[in-house]
Design a protein around this nucleic acid. Sequence first.
DNA 1: TTGTTGGTTCATAATTTTATGAACCAAATA
DNA 2: TATTTGGTTCATAAAATTATGAACCAACAA
Lengths: 153, 153
Amino acid sequence: MTLTADQQQIIERIGVFFETKGNQPILGRIIGLLMVADDAEATFEDIQKCLFVSKSAVSQALTLLQSQNKVEYITKPGERKRYFRLKIRNWKVDIQDDLRKVFKFNEIIEEIISLRGNKNEEFNSYLKEVSNFMQFMEAELPKLIEKYKKQIE
Amino acid sequence: MTLTADQQQIIERIGVFFETKGNQPILGRIIGLLMVADDAEATFEDIQKCLFVSKSAVSQALTLLQSQNKVEYITKPGERKRYFRLKIRNWKVDIQDDLRKVFKFNEIIEEIISLRGNKNEEFNSYLKEVSNFMQFMEAELPKLIEKYKKQIE
DNA sequence: TTGTTGGTTCATAATTTTATGAACCAAATA
DNA sequence: TATTTGGTTCATAAAATTATGAACCAACAA
């Protein structure tokens, strides 16, 4: 498999995106490769050669991505090689998870509120306001997704 | 300033939360301290002593947090010390930014779509579907925030 | 004018994260 | 049976991140 300069570049950008989300560089690049590859799949060897990394790095990264349900592989008749692909069915779920993660902080905020004294009531009410906003958003999110589902029907 | 065991514990949890969002450990802990502190503020010395870190670490972390608009300081008459606080007015904005960041990936997806060949149309249409979902969510988000604002009036 | 307080700066030490290479293994092939 | 293919495993090297300490500075106090 050979990549164009455009493809190489966008793989790096995808890599950076996933890296800033807290993943190690190679994971994002593999996801990137699987996204830009013409047939949306790549063998172990493809990954190693396209990304210029060691066998062990590829092996470990793939193990991780599979454990995270981000990647799976298929096989082809008469071949021993694995063809790795993105487990794309999970994406919308991933997006929702990312959104929920933002509101996850509300759990901590609620704990803080219950712990705080009354030395700074202004801050306390700010906290409550933020908490309220998060609660609202968290509750509305599923409704929004329902709305989307109806819209595409 | 002395912290209870409860306060110490929650500071660590806040620290971990911010750390997994890609920040260095000390930043999250400082934010945590400013959240649980009774008067919602702390001096340079307070921070150093409560978090058991060096002067330089505190100085560098505070510079960063201030540059990120997360922290500010006030002074008190007759005192040279700075009292650091969370710039709490920015929080709802921060939350919105975090949400937008999730959809930011759509820019990359759109680029990928325009770059992809037609070797795997199934994958192509999956990509379009995900992109569509993100576009929808991104467009609805401001409406949701409007709805919230009206609701609290 | 000397010392103290409240910091800042920067080179580098300590730690953590990430990638490597060598050894290994099972299945298929020669 | 020996060799090749397609990987895995693990100790550690390399790189990146984070924290430290020493030197410094300005403002104020003695």
